[in-house]
Design a protein around this nucleic acid. Structure first.
Lengths: 132, 132
DNA sequence: ACACGCAATCTGCAGTTTGCATGTAGCTGC
DNA sequence: GCAGCTACATGCAAACTGCAGATTGCGTGT
């Protein structure tokens, strides 16, 4: 039945998807330029749910494609060349826009936890829930 | 050409993906039981970035699959039957866990906007960023 | 010198998720 | 009866994800 193979968030373990990963990356890059490997590790240290390193690299590439970051090969140091990323003006703009949406999102969530419904429902439903 | 069919976040228009959609739904259901169509509209009215209604219905199904919501057919009213959803205990738990992760996430983002880097980077980078 | 491991990036694959368009079913208005 | 709205569901192609593996460059142990 199409449900055994995939991992469907059955555990209470959040993951960092799509825009959330992208914007976290953008946020780190606002602080300081960095390369993929470093960003991948900063994610781990930040207490944020982690993504695969391959996913991080690909996200960075897409961000560059969208014009939100720019990159250049850094060979100034020893070891394999690093692709240094830095935030662009468009990236900062997007980050700001996203944060606004995020604030609304968090309002909804914390509002729900507080026990009242944020938007007025069309009809009063049955089962007024008891707040824990 | 490669941008008419596929949408690759090139505009500064956030979308609600994966867990974010799921948890928003959960949050609404904490306030009051509801059915898919209603939830889809609440999303629009909440100022949150929207998802396709088909996506909403599917998200609801997955949530039910995971045991975070339960549903029954409501035929008490006129019109086509509605699938009424309500939050389960597991759903509330998941919501709480998610909110904690979200707080960390938001710390990172807003910290970045403030102009300082949240975690201390391994090496001092070049380009001390100018705060806007 | 050579194997080994680490740092750093990239890619193939299979499975999942998404947006869009469309399809079904029931009720309302004309 | 036909159009239109509510409410839910599904097919499809494109996109995204995690995992595993490949690649390059450097340092270390023996």
């Amino acid at each position: 039945m199409a449900e055994s193979t995939g991992r469907k968030r059955t555990t209470a373990e959040p993951r960092l998807h799509g825009e959330m990963l992208a914007t976290s990356l953008l946020a780190f890059l606002k602080g300081c330029n960095a390369y993929g490997y470093q960003l991948s590790q900063q994610l781990s240290e930040s207490g944020l749910p982690q993504s695969d390193s391959g996913t991080v690299y690909r996200a960075l590439r897409q961000l560059e494609n969208s014009g939100f970051v720019s990159s250049f090969w850094d060979t100034s140091d020893q070891g394999p060349a690093r692709r240094m990323y830095s935030l662009t003006a468009a990236g900062e703009l997007f980050l700001g826009t996203w944060i606004e949406a995020l604030n609304r999102y968090q309002e909804v969530l914390t509002g729900a936890l507080a026990g009242f419904d944020v938007p007025a429902p069309t009809e009063g439903d049955s089962t007024e829930e008891e707040v824990t």
